[in-house]
Design a protein around this nucleic acid. Structure first.
Lengths: 121, 121
DNA sequence: CCCATAGTTCTGAATTTCGGAACTAACGGA
DNA sequence: TCCGTTAGTTCCGAAATTCAGAACTATGGG
């Protein structure tokens, strides 16, 4: 099977990255791929939080991430290996990904913690 | 005059910011507001590049930016003053805005300035 | 009061996104 | 080899979003 299309790093556009990561589900998928040693099977992220994502939606999410230049996908037998392209993107747009993922990390905690009553603020 | 709704800075969500800035036109508007001493009338940005933006679209772009927490708008007589909320956003999501605007700045140039050497790896 | 200016809201059309169902590719077992 | 299972893609209609023209509102000037 021919390899999927991936944009060259110099063709990667900021608007594509922002659009891809402006969806919390995609951002969560990307976070998972990035932190999980940059390799992950598609089906391993079949849910975000407690929300189950249908296969077809998952497939298109991966497509968006791939075409935005954020991940690299290759078939390995019956499944897909997804590598993050963090390093390349970091070289092209310094600080972008870490700022975005950091923003999500920072926003993720407060509200949830406040409602749950867990953190003695 | 009743002030328009603006989210408190702690209610600002990363996905809203990314979505707002994932549109190059909005990113350009925001860049203009940010750099122009953080004050600008709506009609002063009636075009992006050589593309003229209709009033209604412009209005909704400003609304998106405002509701994302990126700008603060107040009526002054018949026109609108738009202040950037850079400082607040920077405090909440350190490095986010500068990374994004830097990415756009870096992407905007390359095609034209490719002969500057170094980047064509 | 009437008009001009600046911006908003309404509305329908075009585009995008979502998700179920059917389809394809790769492997394992008999 | 053939069949079944698993992993993921594609197709297609419904829902949501975006776009832009037209009408409307608010403010200030003469």
């Amino acid at each position: 099977m021919r390899p999927l299309f991936h944009p060259a790093i110099e063709d990667v556009q900021p608007e594509a990255i922002l659009h891809a990561l402006s969806d919390p589900a995609r951002a969560a998928i990307f976070a998972k791929i990035s932190t999980a040693g940059c390799v992950e099977a598609c089906s391993a992220v079949s849910s975000v939080g407690d929300r189950v994502i249908p296969k077809s939606s998952l497939s298109s999410h991966f497509k968006v991430l791939r075409e935005a230049g954020l991940i690299r996908c290759e078939r390995h037998g019956v499944e897909m290996r997804n590598h993050s392209r963090c390093a390349e993107v970091e070289a092209r747009f310094p600080g972008l990904l870490s700022a975005i993922m950091g923003a999500y990390a920072r926003a993720g905690a407060p509200r949830v913690a406040a409602q749950k009553g867990g953190t003695a603020a």
